[in-house]
Amino acid sequence: MLRWVRIILGDASATVETLGDGVGSQAVIALARAEARLERAQVAERDAVLALQKYTKTHAEPDPFALDLLDLDDPAVLATYLKSRHVGITKKGIRILISASDNRLPKLRKRLRLMDRYVREAEREKRQAYRAWSEMSA
């Protein structure tokens, strides 16, 4: 948040303590907090997109050598192990792991929707804080 306070004020030496307790200071702090929250939400949303993308890509991967064979959370890896004849894990164990990961795609989609909601809320909070700050600085 301190980074955002410095960016908003255009002062590299600014701190929260040097702002004071005025209404304008509270508006700057609220805007900095909203910017930091939006940044965190966007990073979390990007991570959720990458997780969903990785899952769907490996799920459709025809070449088993392109898979990360140590990732036992990936159903495509488990299916590859199930087809293999020389596996240290038993076939029954692999089937249990596959059945446990069947609901992974809906969970990833649900997480992405949640992250999208967080981003929208953070953007709304930023707009409100920016409006309040611009009224104070005008």
Rank of each mutant, 00 (worst) to 15 (best):
D11Y: 12
A14Y: 11
A14F: 12
V16L: 06
E17N: 03
E17Q: 07
T18V: 15
T18M: 15
G20K: 09
D21L: 05
V23C: 13
G24M: 07
Q26H: 09
A30T: 06
L31F: 05
R33W: 14
A34W: 01
E35F: 03
A36F: 01
A36G: 08
R37T: 03
L38R: 14
V43G: 02
A44Y: 01
A44T: 08
A44R: 08
D47H: 04
V49W: 06
A51F: 07
Q53M: 14
K54T: 12
T56C: 07
T56V: 07
T56W: 01
E61F: 03
P62K: 00
F65K: 07
A66I: 06
L67E: 03
L67K: 09
L67D: 05
D68F: 13
L69Q: 00
D71T: 00
D71R: 00
D71V: 08
L72M: 13
A76I: 01
T80E: 12
Y81T: 00
K83Y: 12
S84K: 09
R85H: 13
V87E: 07
V87Q: 01
I89S: 05
K91H: 13
G93P: 04
S99N: 15
A100M: 11
A100R: 14
S101F: 05
D102E: 15
D102V: 15
N103L: 11
N103C: 11
N103P: 09
R104V: 15
L105V: 10
L108H: 03
R109K: 10
K110Q: 03
L112I: 03
L114C: 12
D116Q: 14
D116G: 14
R117K: 15
E123F: 04
R124W: 10
E125L: 02
R127D: 14
R127V: 13
R127T: 14
Q128P: 12
A129Q: 03
E135K: 10
A138N: 08
